[in-house]
Write a protein that binds this DNA or RNA. Structure first.
Lengths: 189, 189
DNA sequence: TGAGATTAGTCAACTTTCTGACTAGGAGGT
DNA sequence: ACCTCCTAGTCAGAAAGTTGACTAATCTCA
């Protein structure tokens, strides 16, 4: 179970409330994990009970009060234990891939449409990553920042997210085009 | 739930037994999905009950008998329905990313070791993909095969798998090197 | 002849994740 | 005054995925 560790890692930079975490894990800006609000609230409860994070009530006057969390010493120790432990094999799951796999037996035209749409989404995600990367660099040169910046972890994971999204984008367009030419061929027959 | 559809898509090319599917979904040669044997046997049971696949007992003399499955008309209809329906957002989960995210607060040396090891794994996975791609092409030129081959779906998903693995590989090495130079910097201090 | 690997499949218990409905206060517009 | 959106969080139940132990036949090698 590593949602726990993903939460701990996120809380390294900032104190966040469940609601804020929910947004981070929802859009997947964090990019390496995804979770629903309900899961996060539950996880925060368990983490606090276990003493890995500490919650603090924040009174707000313009909106409902909230509870924000920070990582404790124990939490840091747990993160270190996790880092040293063997990683579970990563996995990637995607409906669209299943559709492409079957595309020449189902409906290639529908799949093409979904591929081009997904390419668009990938494009805006790349733009979002570029935005985040720029903000993390905060004016510094990338080489300089990576060598001497104090917190490069989030930058590195963002770089990977961007690369993968770029590959995915190009692949979508290539597939869509290809399925198009094949459809064309079939129409001739 | 799309394990169901991943199974249907896999059975398009061949009839397979639960045991064979388990191996395909285990190593993730299928690459777009992963599942344990227990899940697959359960899923095959449900799919057959629902009439989406049909099982056939195969008597073997050199080893235990088995039951192999093929997609029915109803199953094809379901795949088409799935193809037309909206795709769930894809996701990618990875312990190593969580570790890198936190690396400059935990143990960069351990993470570096894991990055180089993972790079090696990515390399052999790429080799495996190249192998599969070559077998799918079966001597034909890629352009030619993609334009006129009868079954390009599996080839296309394999191409994506290869691209993503390549990016992941390069990123691992880049991160490991970078964390190394930073560690060096810290040692000087 | 016997041990160990491979093929083939099953059962039960558990954890994790997802679906959907719900409370509650304040902000902003009409 | 009302309606809707946003912030903040909770609860219950179902589905999906994981862990671990188990049966049973056949093949290989010593």
């Amino acid at each position: 179970m590593a949602l726990q560790h993903a939460v701990l890692a996120t809380l390294l930079d900032h104190e966040y409330s469940g609601y804020q975490l929910a947004k981070i894990f929802d859009i997947g800006v964090a990019n390496f994990w995804h979770a629903l609000p309900q899961q996060l609230y539950a996880e925060l409860g368990k983490l606090e009970q276990a003493g890995l994070i500490r919650g603090r009530r924040v009174i707000q006057h313009d909106r409902p009060n909230k509870r924000v969390y920070t990582v404790t010493e124990l939490g840091m120790a747990e993160l270190e234990r996790f880092t040293a432990a063997e990683a579970k094999p990563s996995f990637f799951r995607d409906d669209l891939l299943v559709k492409v796999y079957a595309a020449d037996r189902t409906d290639a035209v529908t799949v093409m449409a979904q591929l081009t749409e997904r390419a668009e989404q990938a494009k805006s995600k790349i733009a979002l990553f570029d935005d985040i990367l720029m903000r993390l660099r905060d004016g510094r040169d990338e080489q300089e920042f990576l060598r001497h910046g104090s917190r490069v972890g989030p930058y590195l994971t963002c770089l990977l997210g961007r690369s993968l999204e770029k590959e995915y984008h190009d692949w979508c367009l290539r597939c869509a085009e290809l399925l198009g030419t094949r459809e064309g061929v079939r129409d001739d027959a």
